[in-house]
């Protein structure tokens, strides 16, 4: 499944790019993120608590930054296992471009998500909507953080 969306940000592209690479920003943006630590330049370890309805599971995994093309974008991907619940992974290809007025930035993203195990077996009807929702939340959190 693929999900696409874009935001117009009133900030210069360099500022947005820096934030995209800042673990503090990322931590506050990833929905349910409880822990995010850089373990190498492009790799972070993460703990995320996901609540969907009555389900509540903690995922442990990694966040990777790849296809780095400063300041035009990168791919941020995460994968984690939630123990008995199964595993989830997703990646967002993020592109930044200058707005025509030359001041703002257009952030667009394309998300792919995949779930495994029990969450796939029992929650298939929710996979797409949840992925979309989480992606939206991530970027709207990110935009809010930037506005601060």
């Amino acid at each position: 499944m693929e999900i696409k969306e874009s935001y117009d940000l009133p900030l210069p592209i360099e500022t947005v790019w820096q934030a995209l690479n800042d673990e503090g920003f990322l931590k506050n943006s990833i929905p349910g993120c409880e822990k995010l630590e850089r373990i190498s330049p492009n790799e972070l370890s993460a703990e995320v608590k996901l609540k969907i309805g009555p389900m509540s599971t903690r995922f442990k995994g990694k966040v990777n930054l790849s296809d780095l093309n400063p300041p035009n974008g990168y791919t941020i991907s995460g994968s984690g296992t939630g123990g008995i619940a199964g595993a989830a992974s997703g990646s967002a290809k993020v592109s930044l471009s200058k707005m025509e007025d030359g001041e703002g930035t257009i952030l667009s993203y394309q998300v792919k998500a995949e779930v495994k195990g029990k969450i796939a077996q029992l929650g298939s009807r929710l996979i797409h909507s949840t992925a979309k929702k989480l992606a939206k939340k991530f970027f709207s959190n990110f935009v809010q953080e930037l506005a601060k």
Binding site: A120, Q121, S124, R125
Partner: peptide, 16 residues
């Protein structure tokens, strides 16, 4: 019985 492209069985309960 519906599998997704990764081989996950998406119809593994009576909900689906």
């Amino acid at each position: 019985a519906h599998y997704d492209e990764n081989g996950q069985l998406l119809t593994a309960s009576y909900m689906d």
